[in-house]
C-alpha cells in the first residue's frame, strides 16, 4: 500500500477546506482525483506533499507519516505541479542536475534516461538555456522530466494536460504507464475526464472537500445508479446533487 489518507481534515489557517478524507493509492495503479474547481483537489495534494499539515487524521506513505520519516517520505514522492515552478537562475541542465543531487541519484546512470526523455519532448538541444524563459508547455515538460527521472514510489501530477500539445500528452501518458508497470503509484488530478476515464484504474470524486465516491468506473456506475454511463455523465450527476 503506497499512499493512504486516513480521515484527513485540513486547509489554510483555521478554515477546513477538506473534511474527513479517506482514500488510498495502491502500488501499480493510476488514481484519478476528480472534482470541480474549488472542490479541494489542490489542497489535498498540498497536504500529501507536505506543504500543509493536516489538522486531523494522518497521511502515510508505506505506513509512515512525514513527521515520522521526513526524508524517506520526501524521497518517495515525485511531484508535477499545476503551474511550472522553476529557478530563474538555473539552466535546464542545472535544473536536472539539481534534482539528481536532491534525490541522491547516480548521475551516470540517470543522464541517459534523462536525455531520452528530453529528446522525446524535443528539449535535448536546449540544455544550456534558462527554462524560466520557455513557453508554458515547454516549462511543463521540464517539470515532467525532473519528476520522472526519480525512482519515486508515488507520482503526484496536478492538472498535467493544460498547456501541453497533443503529442506531449501522449508522451506523458506513456511515461506514466511505464512507471505504473514498474510498480509505482500515481495520483493524477484532472478536468480532462475522457483521458482520465481511459487511463486511470480508479477514481476519487471530490465534492465540497469531501470524498463523494471512490472506485473504478463500474463501481461508480453502481454507486450513482447510472448503468453504462461514462465518467462525464457521472461527474455531471455529482454536480447536480449539491
Amino acid at each position: 500500500m503506497t499512499l493512504a489518507l486516513e480521515n484527513v481534515t485540513g486547509g489554510y489557517g483555521n478554515l477546513p477546506v477538506i473534511k474527513n478524507l479517506s482514500f488510498e493509492v495502491p502500488d501499480g495503479q493510476i488514481v484519478g482525483l476528480i472534482g470541480l474547481n474549488g472542490a479541494g483537489k489542490s489542497t489535498t495534494i498540498k497536504h500529501i506533499i507536505g506543504l500543509l499539515t493536516p489538522m486531523q487524521g494522518a497521511i502515510k506513505i508505506d505506513g509512515q507519516t512525514l513527521a515520522e520519516a521526513p526524508e524517506a517520505y520526501r524521497q518517495a514522492i515525485a511531484y508535477v505541479p499545476e503551474t511550472p515552478v522553476l529557478y530563474p537562475e538555473l539552466t535546464l541542465k542545472e535544473h536536472l542536475e539539481l534534482t539528481m543531487m536532491a534525490y541522491d541519484l547516480d548521475a551516470t546512470a540517470t543522464w541517459p534516461r534523462v536525455i531520452e526523455m528530453l529528446e522525446q519532448f524535443r528539449l535535448a538541444n536546449k540544455l544550456d538555456w534558462f527554462p524560466a524563459n520557455f513557453s508554458k508547455g515547454m516549462k511543463q515538460k521540464v517539470m515532467i522530466v525532473a519528476a520522472f527521472m526519480t525512482n519515486a514510489r508515488l507520482y503526484i501530477i496536478d492538472e498535467p494536460f493544460t498547456g501541453l500539445d497533443p503529442l506531449a500528452v501522449h508522451d506523458l501518458l506513456d511515461l506514466v504507464e511505464l512507471k505504473k508497470q514498474a510498480g509505482a503509484a500515481v495520483l493524477m488530478s484532472t478536468h480532462i475526464l475522457a483521458t482520465a476515464q481511459q487511463y486511470a484504474d480508479q477514481f476519487v470524486l471530490l465534492n465540497n472537500g469531501q470524498v463523494r465516491a471512490t472506485g473504478d468506473l463500474t463501481s461508480l456506475q453502481t454507486q450513482f445508479n447510472l448503468a453504462d454511463a461514462d465518467l462525464d455523465a457521472i461527474y455531471m450527476a455529482m454536480t447536480r446533487e449539491a
Binding site: I49, G50, L51, P70, E71, A72, Y73, R74, Q75, I77, Y79, P81, V85, Y87, A102, Y103, D104
Partner: peptide, 15 residues
Amino acid sequence: AYDENVFAQLYPVPT
C-alpha cells in the same frame, strides 16, 4: 530567495 519555490521544500534533503 527560494522560499517561493515549492521544490525547495519538497527535496528529500536534511533541513
